[in-house]
Design a protein around this nucleic acid. Structure first.
Lengths: 229, 229
DNA sequence: GCAAAAGTGTTCGTACTACACCCATGA
DNA sequence: TCATGGGTGTAGTACGAACACTTTTGC
């Protein structure tokens, strides 16, 4: 820690995660049930303290791996915002750096050391510990906005996916209905968004769908447009 | 500070500011020359420690007021990102929460207590202390992107401005040339972007320009488009 | 063949681009 | 009246919305 005086004294720094996934046409967030005070028994965002010699991003990656068991670099992780209101943690001054993770649907999550359990909870969720409801709302809003101008909807999909699966991601996150025909044309004609794998996947009924994987672009030109309600 | 053990121990938290303005068709950033070690004599972003009972946003507002002498709520201030690499400050663990401020051109800045001087420096700037070059780059990129879909270009203008002044803001921040005729039509026809004041301002030459103030919208529909080079 | 889902073509309206043109002022 | 910058009209083009239609499978 710092070996010099400052007006603040010092604070603890945590990395908290808004981990979103799409499952059964629902947007779900990974929550843990707190096993320790404060807010014991309440739902909270997963997260934990940043280690002494650890960068913020590294702490987020570590927490994500600990909570999900993820090893392969799938999905997407980015810094969301920081929250440091003086009274947000009754134990003292805690500043949290929140991260947003978008993942394809994964098997059951594992509980961390200080959590009694973890679960994928469909939105909207009820009460959350600390100011985590606000952090979650900011993360969801960020995710909704980013689907417009970035190809991050593919982060919610497995490595190979159909255009219909991608459209259902948009429809779920935006809570909107999109025209399947126009969506298909737009996605496949936006340079670098998706690339055809060359294989098809059989469906229960109807014509088999082509498989795609995510393309090289990080910015969509032109962007996807959210319907105006 | 926290009265409980954590794996990290604790860190100092600072609020640093990327304060941008447009002056003489140049994008300029407010920098201070450091009067204390480390990096004494080097240019740095203005900022300082978050106080013990102070929210992060409040610290940013306070630092902005101390550095610029601003009292009226003009311009725009938003959180940018946080930076906490272990070695970024040689004095110890310091996590900084960076803020982005967009201001109209103001009189000469004032120096803070731990700074020998402050100045508006045109971009690109040279070497900066700590990791401030990275923070500045992130702030400039954020500003460039936000001009597309938000009316924040008006934050660079005085309360009443002409369409030409607004266009010069876009041209300066984007380093691009925009057609004056189409720009005028688009800005005045985008709902809520600008509102006519009803008065004109005399020019040295040519027809006087109408004065406008910023409108109520926080999101531009349709967005302004950066020319594709 | 029929149902169902994937994918294509076509029409129409809106919005951007480029540039011709008019307007209002100072000298 | 000329120069200069402010502001409008208009044709061509690109793209999204809506929807008719074709394709490919299982039963």
């Amino acid at each position: 820690m710092a070996d010099f005086p400052s007006p603040m004294g010092t604070a603890s720094v945590t990395a908290d995660l808004v981990v979103l996934t799409v499952q059964d046409n629902e947007l779900r967030v990974l929550l843990v049930r707190r096993g320790i005070e404060p807010h014991r028994g309440a739902w909270a965002l997963p997260g934990g303290f940043v280690l002494a010699d650890e960068d913020l991003d590294a702490a987020a990656v570590r927490e994500l791996r600990e909570e999900t068991g993820l090893t392969a670099p799938v999905g997407h992780l980015e810094q969301l915002a920081s929250y440091g209101a003086p009274g947000r943690d009754p134990r003292g001054r805690v500043v949290t750096v929140a991260y947003l993770a978008l993942l394809p649907h994964l098997p059951a999550p594992v509980a961390g050391s200080d959590a009694e359990g973890a679960a994928w909870v469909a939105l909207p969720v009820g009460e959350l510990a600390f100011d985590h409801a606000r952090i979650l709302a900011d993360g969801v809003e960020r995710a909704r906005a980013k689907l417009e101008y970035s190809p991050l909807a593919t982060a919610f999909c497995p490595p190979e996916f159909t255009i219909t699966e991608l459209r259902e991601v948009y429809e779920t996150v935006w809570d909107a209905r999109l025209d399947p025909r126009n969506f298909h044309r737009k996605v496949t004609s936006t340079p670098g968004f998706v690339e055809p794998v060359g294989r098809s996947v059989a469906a229960d009924r109807g014509r088999p769908a082509q498989l795609f994987r995510r393309g090289p672009t990080h910015l969509l030109h032109p962007p996807m447009l959210r319907p105006t309600p």
